[in-house]
Design a protein around this nucleic acid. Structure first.
Lengths: 137, 137
DNA sequence: CCTTGATCTAGAGTGCGCTCTACCTTGTAG
DNA sequence: CTACAAGGTAGAGCGCACTCTAGATCAAGG
């Protein structure tokens, strides 16, 4: 197990570009990156897990600013565990709201698709309150 | 029922800014907007429904480019109904993928929250493969 | 030495989806 | 006639999250 990784290695392992990793670090998202004799970045194996976690936060729509706040708390150690839990809990609620909104929009999309299906089936345009008359042939 | 609306009125009814409406139109998202004697935009009541529909497409992550393509099909009339149905069906599949990805990320978020809850309950940090050692106090 | 490949820093550029500014025209009321 | 609100156009600017460029440096191999 290679404990120390170069930026190129961790880029490959986490699917990020080298540029993105440097940018993340500049934004304060990656605490604990050290340097070798030649001022090159040295990552630890644990950073792979951290970056995957950041990826999850990102996929759930967390902003870079919020991730930075979370990283700053994490860098301050165990004393901030409660705050981090609260942050994630608030974020989870936002995610639940997003999922609900997406599900609702999805439902309405299905209604529209059903409208087109009925049109194709019957050969006659069913009533639809959404398409302006000038968009109908 | 007021059939004709000014840009200010439709902005109020649809929750868009006047600027955004003009920009949408410039992007080709709002076919069928006419002008009055003074070159002012005239919207029809049906445009309210159309804008709400665009809002749903947007909330599900559809790009302006795809909305433009959809609007162009709609403007060509009933002959394109099949293509529109296909577009929406493909988009619905993308939305399902998004919802699934969000649900999965949400699940992992819950695992992390449970980790913090256990930490708080036991007073001892449970094992966690994601936080780099230098982020632990 | 010299070259090669990886990395470094600072900063410019990109794509998306608006948002805002500047300045001009139009319709209505006093 | 004047004032004023609403609307018009063209185009610059913005926030986000990267992405890329330019030019310097460094370690290892021939």
């Amino acid at each position: 197990m290679v404990e120390h990784l170069s930026i190129g290695e961790i880029a490959r392992e986490t699917g990020r570009s080298i540029h993105a990793l440097r940018w993340y670090e500049a934004q304060g998202l990656i605490p604990g990156v050290t340097r070798d004799g030649g001022r090159r970045r040295v990552y630890r194996q644990a950073h792979v897990g951290w970056l995957r976690f950041l990826g999850r936060l990102k996929r759930t729509g967390m902003s870079v600013g919020d991730m930075k706040a979370y990283a700053a708390l994490a860098a301050r150690g165990g004393a901030t565990a409660g705050e981090r839990e609260a942050m994630l809990t608030r974020h989870l609620e936002r995610v639940d709201g997003e999922i609900a909104a997406l599900a609702e929009a999805r439902r309405l999309l299905e209604v529209k698709i059903a409208f087109y299906a009925e049109w194709g089936r019957s050969g006659r345009r069913p009533p639809d309150p959404e398409i302006p008359p000038e968009l109908r042939s």
